[in-house]
């Protein structure tokens, strides 16, 4: 469904991605793990067009994405939950969710989608008229995920959804990701919390300073000696 080949990205003189390749098949949850500064966020930003690719290819359902502008990606069925939530603080919860459906025009489908998001995140329904800047960090994360789901995506890219959240909320967020998967949405998950991420993923890739150094089934990666030492703190 999503295939990245030899992707290179630079910030000025600094090469952030030195030719990475990976693929995400339909229905999978793929974990992209690695330390701070490994290039995980850069990879996601390049896929959804927020950063230009220097070379290499990104193919989504057979379409080359490297030349597609960022605002055209979501209508193709790819949603991105950015790092740090980035909800629109001056818009209400409901308005934020409607922003997620910006490119859609079928009102009935949108309101059905909204009901689905509300049933998945009851807290958002309670607070729908509240300005999203006043939500707690966990609620903002749920809003960012709900907003992405409002585009009814085929694949959803999530960047550090558990960052800065309490352990209970982290569990809640990972439960939701599993439910999103159960609904048939493909997930590309970027996480520093490698253990959690791998435990709900089908396969995983390990990124280190702009290169993929390891890949395999999530269960194998979880048992890999090298990974246990470097990322699972064992």
């Amino acid at each position: 469904m999503l295939e990245i080949k030899d992707l290179e990205v630079s910030y000025g003189m600094i090469k952030a991605l030195k030719g990475i390749s990976f693929r995400v098949d339909e229905g999978e949850v793929i974990a992209l793990i690695g330390a701070n500064g490994a290039g995980k966020t850069t990879a996601l930003h390049t896929i959804t067009g927020l950063l230009p690719a220097e070379s290499g290819s990104i193919r989504f359902d057979g379409v080359e994405l490297t030349k597609v502008p960022a605002h055209k990606i979501v209508a193709m069925g790819m949603a991105h939950v950015p790092e740090g939530r980035r909800v629109f603080a001056n818009l209400s919860v409901l308005q934020n969710l409607r922003m997620g459906a910006y490119t859609r025009s079928d009102r009935d489908e949108i309101s059905r989608n909204l009901e689905m998001v509300f049933s998945r995140f009851p807290r958002l329904k309670e607070r729908q008229n509240q300005l999203s800047g006043t939500l707690s960090g966990g609620e903002q994360q749920m809003l960012a995920m709900g907003r992405a789901l409002m585009s009814s995506p085929k694949i959803i890219l999530m960047d550090e959804p558990s960052m800065g959240l309490s352990p209970i909320l982290v569990n809640e967020i990972f439960d939701i990701i599993e439910k999103v998967k159960a609904d048939g949405t493909t997930v590309l998950l970027v996480e520093q919390n490698a253990k959690k991420a791998l435990s709900i993923s089908d396969r995983g890739y390990v990124l280190e300073t702009g290169r993929i150094v390891l890949e395999g089934k999530a269960s194998e990666l979880l048992n890999n000696e090298q990974i246990r030492k470097a990322y699972l703190g064992e």
Partner: peptide
Amino acid sequence: EDKGAAALMGINV
């Protein structure tokens, strides 16, 4: 508020 996040919503900035 946020040009990048707006683009991710499909808004032509």
